[in-house]
Design a protein around this nucleic acid. Structure first.
Lengths: 338, 338
DNA sequence: ATTAGCACTCACGCTTACCGAGTGCCAGGA
DNA sequence: TCCTGGCACTCGGTAAGCGTGAGTGCTAAT
């Protein structure tokens, strides 16, 4: 019983099941796939594959279905697919004429969800460091201020800080002016010291420190991690793979950004390339019947942000992996040039 | 055959069907509701209600179910519900400690989706007019510029304009300085004329006009209308009301912001209070089995923006209407104070 | 190690039958 | 004129019975 034929059988089972969504039996497999052996032989192989926990049968007189472990083996050892050419072109045209950062992210999710026919997830790029171009302080009510930082690389970050007390107008204006003098043109590292000094000079006013912190944080990059998704409809269309109740749970998990972000983080730390979580590996009740394929992206080859595709465990792994990888690469390049 | 008893029967049918999701029959209705008449009488009333097209029976030997027209009558003449007290408190606590505009909107959708157990939709407030506080021009690449406008009421708007050609640095800087001089402190009306004049003085450079337009547009209010939604999971949970395929179409329609926005607009022009679209009234294939309840909100009582809840036609209209109305009112107040 | 043969299992689809909720209609009563 | 009790009728839903066929595991032969 040769090792590679067993692999071939597993591969055929995975591919067959993914394609038809029906358990695949020994006979059909012997005919369709070019293994050149009889059904009986395949049955023997199946028996050992089942013993190893890679496949299972839903009920006695049905064909075999891959288990989570089976998909895992498939992904680790058997999956390989080139990106389809029309897809490559689609990525080019879709992303090339995006202008603004929001636009890029927005287009990316949509694109990825269309390419994979899954739910696509894209985290906003946690931007690289760059110099401050202008800081704007705007009052909100009496005790809050809006801090707007425009950076040299055309980002606009805003955040709100509590002043702690009412601040006289002229004091506020003067602080804003001096803050600009102290901040403009600096990258985060010197900015930190410069603003610490500034806050020190304004030691008498309690709100100087929080404002300084806000400016530095804004210059450093995004304040909150945020992730957008698209293509939720694809989940519903996967119909047979979920009972309709389960779809609800999955959607809940998606709206609960926290879960997703934690998961994505864990994943990109595991592998520099695309990485895959299958079914139970999600460690999440609601997502136990789904898989996610994720990749990091970012300027200069360091994967600072994340994107991915999520769908039923019965998904086209090679194709999805190729699409995710391609979009991640292309997005890296776009982010770099911005 | 008294007119008001027939209404009572319709009301009972609607309420019963909404509660149980099963067609309601004459017998059950005679027992549960306090009409004090026999099943036979109710059957007569049902017959005329059916003739008027307000109710229908799914098949011969089943109870009755409201039609779209039936729900419409119910909503127009029979619905009345006070906001539940715990709900009122929830609104207070949920929205009161929001700080930032994004935060407010985000909290609102979540809140509304929880209160109504439907998909909640909230449009970003199209802000009122206010004076320009500062205009920032930032280059992107060689032929684009980012226009950032900070307004006196603490909004930050950004948009990108094409310059049409490479612009020398010093020309760019000078334009930015003069642009600020021409714009700062002005509300949109005078801003328009001031910037037209400015663009005129810079008539020789082709990009002055588009930049001026961008600034005015930014000062006028949001550039793009944007709507966020939450609680998509509630759709899936409504299970029996949709075949799982239809859920997909609805989700698609939701991600397609355009459809939703047009719909919401039409609605708030119809009525100053909450307004309701039921089933076929949506004029949209994908949403034919859903209803939406929407209300406008905005500062000073003028409903400049929209929010609503969308769910299956078989929904709790009075409760949802109350929740939508309450959130809209409260949100108006919050927006006003910002 | 592979294969052919064979007995066995069991989900699925089809038909049949039954039940009961719900109806429409009619005739009698307030 | 309006309401009610009675009655025959319809028909969806469920359960039971049955045949079919795909798929299996095992054994013996190659």
């Amino acid at each position: 019983m040769s090792e590679d034929r067993r692999s071939a059988v597993l591969r055929a089972i995975v591919e067959g099941y993914v394609a038809t969504s029906e358990p695949v039996g020994s006979k059909a497999l012997a005919e369709s796939s070019a293994l050149g052996v009889s059904p009986a032989t395949i049955r023997n192989d199946m028996a050992s594959l089942e013993e190893e926990g890679l496949i299972a049968q839903p009920h006695t007189s049905a064909g075999r279905v891959p288990t989570d472990a089976g998909y895992r083996f498939f992904v680790d050892h058997l999956a390989a697919a080139a990106l389809q050419d029309p897809h490559r072109r689609a990525i080019q045209t879709f992303l090339s004429d995006a202008v603004d950062l929001n636009d890029v992210v927005e287009r990316s999710v949509r694109l990825l969800s269309q390419l994979t026919r899954q739910v696509a997830v894209v985290q906003y790029p946690s931007v690289r460091e760059s110099a401050v171009r202008r800081v704007e302080l705007v009052r909100i009510g009496t005790e809050h201020a809006l801090v707007v930082v425009v950076s040299a690389d055309a980002r606009v970050e805003q955040s709100t800080v509590a002043l702690g007390a009412a601040v006289p107008d002229e004091e506020f204006e003067r602080a804003a002016r001096e803050l600009n003098e102290a901040a403009v043109g600096l990258t985060p590292a010197p900015l930190q010291t410069s603003l610490d000094a500034w806050a020190g000079r304004h030691g008498q006013v309690a709100w100087a420190a929080p404002v300084a912190d806000a400016v530095v944080a804004a210059a450093r990059g995004g304040t909150v991690e945020k992730v957008v998704f698209a293509g939720a409809a694809n989940l519903a269309r996967a119909g047979a793979d979920f009972e309709s109740d389960a779809i609800g749970s999955v959607l809940d998990a998606l709206e609960e950004q926290v879960v997703l972000l934690r998961l994505l983080h864990e994943m990109t730390h595991e592998s520099p390339d695309v990485s895959v979580r299958i079914g139970a590996e999600m460690n999440n009740e609601a997502l136990a019947r789904t898989s996610i394929i994720a990749a990091g992206y970012g300027p200069g080859g360091d994967a600072t942000s994340l994107l991915g595709a999520l769908g039923p465990t019965r998904m086209d792994y090679p194709g999805t992996m190729a699409a995710v990888r391609a979009v991640a690469r292309y997005l890296s390049r776009v982010v770099e040039n911005e």
